[in-house]
């Protein structure tokens, strides 16, 4: 990205003065010797941070792999209840926002302040659009009672339910009315087929909510970071020599995008091996 060609640990030339008397660019922190060293440190720091994020999501992907291997049929049945259109729209929105984030870095490198601001604003708006679409998806799931764990089959917005009562496109089927008995869900999925969902499907929706919820949290964090970068940019704190926050903010945003690129097919498009 940046035109930084000095070796990573070059430090200062031997014998250089390291007091505070000589002229430093104002963005250079006191403990770094050169802007290149500072940039490299910041960038490496962000990469290491991204590694920690990947490992955190890694735990969830691992859990996903285990339960899908144990219950491929349930995953197949349950995934039909996710809205592929909404998921695909969100994928496009995020991919586009990654492009604008990368363009923001490019224009920051070229010193085009207003262009950088514009690209950042588009990126943030895309993030908002993503969250709005996600909100409608969540609301739909919650209305149907497609919820994790104990909440599975208990729609929050529809009062007390009788046996066999229809809720939206969803029908609860109790094998037995005894309290604590697992609930089966009979429902019409996104493609209009009637499906009978076993109680074990709660695990799929548990994963769905935890994974997309954690990802959604990251979208919010990423938005805040980009907004902070935007404010700095409007204040004119960046230049072709110093644009590190734009670069790192965009890098973080790409991670948020990338996680979704994996979540979308794993949750919305799983299918079953023939």
């Amino acid at each position: 990205m940046a035109n930084v060609s000095e070796p990573v640990h070059a430090g200062a030339a031997p014998g250089a003065d390291h007091g505070h008397d000589h002229a430093h660019p104002s963005f250079l922190q006191h403990h770094f010797d050169t802007p290149a060293q500072q940039f490299n440190a910041s960038k490496l720091g962000m990469w290491v941070f991204i590694v920690t994020e990947i490992l955190m999501f890694g735990g969830l992907f691992c859990a996903y792999a285990i339960w899908r291997a144990l219950d491929p049929d349930v995953f197949d049945q349950a995934h039909h209840f996710l809205d592929k259109i909404m998921g695909a729209s969100n994928t496009i929105v995020l991919l586009f926002s990654s492009l604008t984030a990368a363009l923001a870095v490019r224009s920051a490198q070229l010193g085009k302040k207003n262009q950088t601001s514009a690209y950042l604003i588009v990126t943030i708006l895309c993030a908002c659009a993503f969250l709005v679409i996600k909100f409608f998806e969540y609301r739909h799931k919650i209305e149907l009672g497609l919820l994790p764990g104990h909440c599975f089959g208990h729609p929050w917005f529809s009062g007390s339910i009788q046996k066999g009562e229809t809720i939206g496109t969803c029908l609860r089927v109790h094998a037995d009315q005894a309290p604590g008995n697992p609930t089966w869900l009979k429902a019409i999925d996104q493609s209009g087929h009637v499906q009978l969902l076993p109680p074990r499907a709660n695990m799929f929706f548990g994963l769905y909510f935890v994974m997309t919820g954690l990802h959604g949290l990251h979208v919010i964090i990423g938005m805040s970071v980009l907004a902070w970068v935007l404010v700095k940019n409007i204040r004119g704190q960046f230049s072709p020599e110093y644009f590190t926050p734009v670069d790192l903010g965009a890098l973080y945003w790409h991670l948020v995008d990338l996680v979704w690129i994996y979540l979308f097919p794993l949750l919305y498009l799983v299918g079953k091996p023939e």
Partner: peptide, 19 residues
């Protein structure tokens, strides 16, 4: 980070009963 997600899941388990 793996501890973080483990403890987060444990908290979800206690709060929401994700199971």
């Amino acid at each position: 980070p793996v501890l973080a997600i483990t403890l987060l899941l444990l908290i979800c388990e206690r709060f929401f009963g994700i199971g």
